[in-house]
């Protein structure tokens, strides 16, 4: 009796811990909710039109958590079977997440059992939120980042499921809703610009990406951009970094 009571107390406090972390994290994920639910619905609709079963749509949303790969998958699943090009194309599309992972090494250090889930759930949006936002006092960073990843994951699954199961019933014109995520990235960029006095890395990121976009086009510019950014930051490390110290001293 006593044991079961104390067990339930522990369980409740764990539940409450996640509830608190979820409450703190939720406002940061609202833009993601807008973006993911509607992008998920579009994905579900595309899969329906491609005659794919609803369960496959939902399983893909649960396991892949990657908008770009899943939209690409709709095409791949309808073309001739080609395992090699499937793997190569998708490795290319997802290669930039290696750079996100590299960036998150520090943040995800010490997250223990939740680490595999956090790594699995690296998306552009979850990456940016978990990199830049911090929980209020009293809430553990790991719980907080886990809840960000978990809620974003749920939005994507819910969107995909709605699209696959009842998507044809939706009549609301959603054109332009994708700007929610553009807006979120822009706001975070502006906030970072205000916090970090060293603007060089941000400027390098923007300029290299624009040049790469002009050279390689919308479909394939991110990998070359990331590689060049990495090279510049490593080679001109002193120039990019030293000024930070000077500005901090002022």
């Amino acid at each position: 009796m006593i044991i079961s009571m104390s067990e339930s107390k522990v369980k409740q406090s764990t539940f409450q811990r996640y509830l608190m972390a979820g409450r703190a994290a939720f406002p940061h994920t609202i833009p993601v909710m807008a973006g993911y639910v509607f992008a998920g619905i579009s994905f579900g609709l595309l899969m329906n039109h491609a005659q794919m079963p609803a369960w496959l749509t939902i399983v893909m949303c649960i396991t892949m958590i990657s908008g770009s790969s899943q939209f690409l998958a709709v095409d791949l699943l309808q073309s001739a079977f080609n395992p090699l090009s499937t793997v190569v194309i998708n490795l290319m599309v997802n290669s930039r997440y290696s750079f996100c992972g590299l960036t998150l090494l520090d943040r995800y250090k010490g997250t223990g059992k939740k680490k595999p889930y956090l790594i699995w759930n690296i998306t552009d949006e979850t990456f940016v939120i978990n990199l830049t936002s911090n929980p209020p006092e009293g809430i553990h960073l790991t719980d907080y980042m886990f809840m960000v990843a978990f809620m974003d994951h749920m939005y994507w699954i819910i969107g995909g499921s709605i699209g696959a199961l009842i998507g044809e019933l939706i009549k609301f014109n959603m054109d332009g809703i994708g700007f929610a995520m553009t807006g979120m990235f822009t706001c975070i960029f502006l906030d970072q610009w205000g916090i970090n006095k060293n603007h060089k890395p941000a400027v390098i990121g923007v300029i290299v990406a624009i040049i790469s976009l002009l050279i390689f086009g919308a479909q394939s510019f991110m990998l070359p951009a990331m590689l060049v950014i990495l090279a510049i930051l490593l080679i001109f490390d002193k120039y990019v970094n030293v000024k930070v110290g000077e500005e901090e001293q002022k």
Binding site: F99, C100, L102, T103, V128, L131, T132, F185, I188, F189, Q192, N196, N198, K200, P201, A202, V203, I204, G205, V206, V208, A209, M226, I229, L230, L233, D237, V240, N241
Partner: peptide
Amino acid sequence: TLPYAVIG
């Protein structure tokens, strides 16, 4: 440096 560049 990398986080700021990647967000950009």
